[in-house]
């Protein structure tokens, strides 16, 4: 999975993009977070406010993710 970080999350991870291996065929939202927090425990405090997008579309808690997906962590936005 390609994982993208934006805004303040980039400060925490120190990079804009990483790739993570999906364990098994697919995984759910908490699976993705588990992988992320393993790599970057510093993201834990942002989890409450971060939304996930799969292939450039917001997804809900029921979403499943596969290895070829691009997953973006979207912190609160501030455009305009």
């Amino acid at each position: 999975m390609k994982i993208l970080f934006f805004g303040p999350l980039k400060e925490i991870t120190g990079c804009g993009e990483i790739s993570l291996r999906c364990p098994g065929v697919d995984t759910d939202t908490s699976g993705v977070w588990q992988l992320l927090l393993q790599a970057y425990p510093g993201l834990a405090s942002s989890r409450r406010v971060v939304r996930l997008a799969r292939n450039a579309v917001y997804v809900g808690p029921q979403a499943r993710f596969q290895d070829h997906d691009e997953v973006a962590l979207i912190p609160p936005v501030s455009g305009g």
């Binding site: 934006f6 917001y58 973006a72 979207i74 912190p75 936005v77 501030s78 455009g79």
Partner: peptide, 12 residues
């Protein structure tokens, strides 16, 4: 404009 500021992934 309200929705842009809520949902569109752009950051200052």
């Amino acid at each position: 404009m309200v929705r842009l500021k809520q949902d569109v992934p752009i950051w200052k």
